[in-house]
């Protein structure tokens, strides 16, 4: 794993990153100043197949945006069963930006994958400097969780009585 692209004339990694950060769903519509600060804090990293991004049960203080490649979500109890796959343009770990929790899943690179990594402590510092963006980000986050559950309900729970017991996180 390494920072992927060496800086080349005309292209500047920071500008590309800013472009990406602006379009991350929970950051869409934020003023430019905080976006620039957030981008400044982002680092690129490349993972090779089999590299573990996040260990189940361990604190992971980062959020990840996948620039290229695929990563897989698994549980340690059954590492072969891939629960979900994420690829280009996916943003993972938004919740870890807000609170320290042990991760419930393991995240592993399936192909060579390049990610943009945003650390929580630095995100929190940004929030402190621009408190007004917190509300906006939180709203976007809540919406995406609701959307997810809505999909769960329509796709699974209606046709599967056992699954019904498992839904309901948005009631929190």
């Amino acid at each position: 794993m390494s920072s992927s692209t060496e800086p080349k004339q005309g292209s500047c990694e920071y500008k590309d990153n800013l472009e990406i950060v602006m379009h991350i769903p929970i950051f869409v519509g934020l003023p430019l100043e905080p976006l620039k600060v957030l981008t400044y804090f982002c680092k690129r990293a490349t993972f090779f197949p089999g590299d573990i991004l996040v260990h189940e049960q361990e604190m992971d203080p980062n959020a990840y945006f996948i620039i290229s490649g695929t990563v897989a979500l698994t549980l340690d109890s059954s590492p072969e069963n891939i629960i979900l796959e994420f690829g280009e343009m996916d943003f993972l770990g938004a919740l870890s930006l807000f609170c320290t929790r042990k991760r419930l899943f393991t995240l592993k690179a399936k192909t060579k994958a390049t990610c943009l990594i945003l650390p929580r402590d630095k995100f929190q510092k940004t929030l402190e400097q621009f408190p007004e963006i917190g509300r906006q980000i939180f709203e976007a986050l809540a919406k995406s969780i609701c959307r997810w559950e809505a999909r769960l309900i329509t796709e699974h729970a209606l046709g599967c009585p056992e699954c019904r017991a498992a839904i309901g996180p948005t009631v929190v």
Partner: peptide, 10 residues
């Protein structure tokens, strides 16, 4: 340039 990515080296 590898650390201070905000500016590129020509």
């Amino acid at each position: 340039p590898g650390i201070h990515t905000m500016v590129a080296l020509s």
